[in-house]
């Protein structure tokens, strides 16, 4: 309906399914991700290091992170950045990588239970998940690491 929503919402299932889902052999499976006592995730979830460039694209891609539906990043050239969440400018000064990773993987655990922010690498999701998405995460393990790598570049 609304383009926004469609946006937020990372609309078309097809590309999402193709890109996410089936965890690659050496990735940490979503159900095996371990949070530290401080709420962070120390060990990267993907076998390969993240790419900040790839992460940058995920933040604005409506079918992937679509993070800018809710957050602003001043240095990103993306129209209609939302303000449901805080600005991500300088976020790397506020959080260690382990905490950033945890927020992306499952903010309900990393931040607080009631947050609107979706968990991008968790199977702890809502009811009646669309049939073709059952058992799938929004982002792949690699994409999570890409986003974490990009967020680490956001310093004031």
């Amino acid at each position: 309906m609304t383009s926004t929503l469609r946006a937020l919402v990372l609309a078309s299932g097809i590309s999402a399914v193709a890109l996410t889902g089936s965890a690659i052999a050496n990735d940490v499976k979503p159900e095996a991700v371990a949070f530290s006592d401080a709420g962070g995730i120390e060990t990267p979830v993907a076998a390969q290091a993240g790419s900040a460039d790839a992460g940058k694209k995920i933040l604005t891609d409506r079918g992937l992170g679509n993070c800018v539906a809710c957050h602003q990043v001043s240095s990103l050239d993306a129209p209609f950045q939302g303000n449901v969440g805080p600005s991500l400018d300088g976020v790397a000064d506020r959080y260690e990588p382990a905490m950033l990773r945890a927020i992306i993987v499952n903010p309900k655990k990393a931040l607080y239970e009631g947050t609107i922010m979706p968990g991008f690498y968790t199977l702890d999701v809502g009811k009646h998940v669309r049939e073709d998405l059952v058992g799938q995460t929004i982002l792949s393990a690699q994409q999570v690491e890409d986003v974490v790598a990009y967020l680490q570049t956001l310093k004031e």
Partner: peptide, 14 residues
């Protein structure tokens, strides 16, 4: 107030 879907959102969230 029930969260639904992969994005795990309820009407009240928005």
């Amino acid at each position: 107030y029930t969260r639904t879907g992969q994005l795990n959102l309820s009407c009240s969230n928005c």
